[in-house]
């Protein structure tokens, strides 16, 4: 189950989206998230769907690869949609039982919320699938550089993030291994109530933490051995430079947001 989360997994392919400047992609993701929460009505949804589908197409990442990330949030999706469905008051009531009711607004809300969450995961994992964590942190580092002036250690934060991302798959693999080793010795992770389940996690978490610390120490030494000395005086193998495509993308993204807002104002059906 844990293996299925695709966030933080780079999918190598040769596409326009892969080649975009990470700053553009960060900006686009931000705009995309804003768009997801300001859109109203079927037209806006249509525009977002087209936009998302177009980018997925261009990215050359297999759609299957992306939906893997969704499996992990199925439970969350079900809970939000059920609550939205049953707890929203509305004009037309189809069914009522105590304080639970199904109304027209409830149906719309629950459908929209589900779509929003699904699109949110798809869009953000698309960014991490097409951007190497290094590029991503490079992008963040450059974008946040002004914060250096008020003593925010931007470089260190970026480095921490990229290392965390690199070690996610390794730690997941390790969790799997420890789990199997404990199961072979009779540990039970499946049965019992929530508290018992939480308790059974202890023999999993302790060795995991110990090994994570050991890894951290090793890694720190390996980095020092390769002359790592903080951010000062570092050069870049792939310095960030805007190209023609990047400027065009900025335009496209801004245009997209404008379109979504216009659509929300002009034709908010069926939410208006």
């Amino acid at each position: 189950m844990i293996r299925d989360i695709t966030i933080g997994q780079f999918y190598p392919a040769d596409s326009v989206i892969h080649k975009l400047d990470p700053r553009v992609k960060l900006f686009a993701t931000m705009i995309y998230i804003i768009a997801l929460f300001v859109f109203k009505g079927i037209l806006g949804l249509g525009i977002i769907t087209l936009f998302l589908a177009g980018i997925i197409r261009m990215s050359k990442v297999p759609f299957k690869f992306m939906t893997k990330g969704l499996k992990a949030i199925v439970l969350l999706l079900i809970i939000t949609s059920v609550f939205n469905l049953l707890a929203t008051p509305g004009d037309i009531v189809f069914w009522k039982w105590g304080s639970l009711q199904i109304t027209d607004k409830g149906i719309i809300n629950s459908v929209l919320m589900t779509i929003r969450l699904v699109y949110l995961i798809l869009g953000t994992s698309l960014m991490t699938l097409t951007t190497t964590p290094n590029q991503l942190t490079d992008g963040l580092e450059t974008a946040l550089k002004p914060l250096n002036k008020i003593n925010v250690p931007v470089h260190s934060i970026a480095m921490m993030m990229s290392i965390a991302l690199r070690f996610i798959p390794i730690l997941i693999e390790e969790t799997d291994k420890i789990m199997k080793a404990q199961m072979a010795r009779g540990a039970d992770f499946e049965s019992g109530n929530l508290i018992q389940k939480a308790k059974s996690m202890v023999p999993l978490l302790v060795p995991l933490f110990v090994s994570a610390f050991r890894r951290a120490e090793d890694l720190a030494m390996a980095m020092e051995a390769r002359c790592y000395n903080g951010g000062e005086g570092r050069t870049k193998m792939k310095p960030l430079k805007y190209g023609k495509c990047d400027y065009i993308s900025y335009g496209v993204v801004v245009g997209f947001l404008v379109l979504v807002i216009v659509a929300a104002v002009l034709l908010p059906f069926p939410q208006g």
Partner: peptide, 8 residues
């Protein structure tokens, strides 16, 4: 594993 820093 513990000496490779980048993801590519």
């Amino acid at each position: 594993d513990n000496q490779i820093i980048a993801s590519v």
